[in-house]
Amino acid sequence: MAARRSTIRGERTKEPKNVGNFKIGQGAVVCTEAQLTGDITIGSHTVVHPTAVIHAEGGPVIIGENNHIMEKAVIINKKRPDGEPVKPLVIGNNNLFEFLSRCESMSVGSENIFEPKCVVGDNVIVSDYCVIGSECKVQSNETLPSGTVISGTDGRRWNKQVNIKSENHQQLEYLVKLLPNFHRTIKST
C-alpha cells in the first residue's frame, strides 16, 4: 500500500530546468532530474540523485569528491543581502547528504553526515566528521567543531574523540555504474 503511488500526492514530477554553469568532474554522476541552478562545480566520483536540489543563489557551490547527495536533499548557497560580498559554498569530500536533509551552511568540511530531515542554517560552519542527526536543526551562528554529533529528539550534542572514515565508497562505485542505466545524466565537462 505504501508503494501505491510513485509520486507524492498532488504533486506531479515536472522536468526541472537546470539553468547555470556546471562543471562536473570525472566519474561523477549527476542526474538531469536533479534541480541545479547557478554556478556549480561537482568533484569526481560524486553522485547526485534525481530530485536532489542544489541552488547557487548567493555565490558558486563547489562540491568535492566522493560526496553522496541523495533524493530530495537540498544544498543552498543562500542569497546574501545587497552590498555583502559573494561567497562560495565549499563542500569537502566524502560527505553524505541523506534524504530530505537541508544544508544552507557557509562551508562544509569532509566526512560529514547529514541525516534525513536535518536542517543546517546559513550561519553555521560545519567542520569535519560531524553528524547532524535526523530532524535535528542547527540554525544559530556557530562553528561546529570536528566530530560533533547532534542526535535524538532533544538534539543532544557530544564530541566524538575517535573519527571513523565513511564506508560508502562501495555504494558510490555501485551507483556510478547503476544510475546512468536508468537516468539521463548531465555530462561531465
Binding site: S151, G152, K160, Q161, I164
Partner: peptide, 9 residues
Amino acid sequence: TSCHWTTRE
C-alpha cells in the same frame, strides 16, 4: 547507528 558512538570512544 543512531548517535555514532563506538566502543573505540
